[in-house]
Amino acid sequence: MTKPTFDLQSHSLHSDGVLPAADVVARAAEAGVELLALSDHDTIDGVDEAIAAGVRHGVAVVPSTEISSVDGRYEDLHVLGYGIDHHDPVLAERLLSARADRELRAERMAAKLNELGFEVDDAPLAKRRAAGKPLGRPHLAEAVLIHPANAERLAEEGHDDISSFIPAYLIPGTPGYLARTHPTVFEAIGWIHDAGGLAIWAHPYWDLDSDEEVLGALDRFKAAGLDGVEAFYPTHSAEQTRLVVDKARELGLLTTGSSDYHGPEHRLFRTFLAHELHGAEPDLTPLHEAAARAAAAATAGS
């Protein structure tokens, strides 16, 4: 069975990963990744470092970001931007506004968690704020988990990592959750296009449950200018993958994929090339071209 040599979503300490961007690239190279995207949430701060590391390690790195977006009742859909101009000041300003919205939301959720009886360690949150790093639910959950005053309650409830705490307290319908309002999926697509990139809807079946919802969203997002969809993903079944690939072919969309690498100790996303192709062969020519341009520019400027 053909295995992928591309991994088009990964995260560093600039968002919710744990490794520096260069280390993410080095580990990708060790795993046999040939085409990589460092797609930190709502930031492009690690892209230059990743591209430079890619040149050293022989990995083609696509300039990328992952924009956390809303779409009606769907309150946390992700739109990947590939081949963006990561030095575009307009994009940087827009991503800053998105991070500010997330930060305000995180502060309000921290207050709700306090009301629910949890102590929230502000030190790591303040450190990220001071560094201009995105602040999201994983960081808020970690701030609860590391506070010693919460240890007994967390043990009683069976929460020993963020992967169990977030579904219990920080998703829609749970007591600590608050919705975001900005940007919408349509706005995120526009931001990516304005920066010269391709807009790809990430892991559709991670966020939506039914085939009908996924196919309907693809129709709507395509009408708004979507360029592709992440069909190949560790949690997508063979049937879901084939359904998305067939729909993408019908709509003229690119199909991409990733293992969504977050770090070597992550409960779900710790292994590069963990996504399956299930017999499909994506055409990633535009992304290879974008990576080649980025590497040439980095080499010329060094």
Score class of each variant (00 low, 15 high):
Leu95Arg: 08
Leu135Met: 11
Ala141Gln: 12
Ala111Cys: 01
Glu103Lys: 13
Arg105Trp: 06
Leu113Gly: 10
Pro89Val: 12
Lys127His: 14
Ala100Met: 15
Met109Gly: 07
Glu115Ser: 01
Ala111Trp: 10
Ala123Ile: 03
Gly72Cys: 12
Tyr82Arg: 08
Glu119Tyr: 00
Gly132Lys: 14
Pro134Tyr: 09
His87Lys: 07
Lys112Ser: 03
Leu77Tyr: 09
Leu91Ser: 05
Ala131Cys: 01
Ser97Tyr: 07
Leu113Ile: 00
Val90Pro: 11
Leu96Met: 15
Leu140Ser: 04
Gly132Asp: 13
Glu142Val: 03
Ile84Pro: 04
Pro89Gln: 09
Ala123Val: 03
Asp85Met: 04
Leu116Gln: 11
Ala111Ser: 08
Lys112Cys: 00
Glu75Met: 01
Lys112Gln: 13
Arg99Ala: 04
Lys133Arg: 15
Lys133Ile: 04
Ser68Lys: 14
Lys112Val: 06
Asp85Ile: 01
Arg128His: 09
Val90Ile: 14
Val144Trp: 04
Leu145Gln: 03
Asp71Pro: 05
Leu104Trp: 03
Val70Asp: 11
Ala131Tyr: 06
Arg73Ala: 06
Pro124Thr: 13
Arg99Thr: 08
Pro89Lys: 07
Leu140Val: 01
Tyr74Gly: 09
Arg108Glu: 13
Ala100Leu: 15
Asp122Leu: 14
Asp71Asn: 09
His147Thr: 01
Glu142Ile: 08
Ile67Thr: 01
Pro134His: 02
Leu113Thr: 09
Pro138Glu: 09
Leu140Lys: 12
Ala92Pro: 05
Asp121Arg: 10
Ser97His: 13
Ser97Glu: 14
Ala106Phe: 01
Tyr82Asn: 02
Lys127Ala: 15
Ala110Thr: 05
Gly132Trp: 14
Ala111Tyr: 10
Arg137Gly: 02
Leu80Thr: 01
Arg137Leu: 03
Glu75Asn: 08
Glu119Phe: 04
Met109Arg: 13
His78Arg: 14
Ile146Pro: 05
Pro89Trp: 08
Gly81Tyr: 06
Leu96Ala: 15
Leu125Glu: 12
Ser68Pro: 04
Ala130Trp: 12
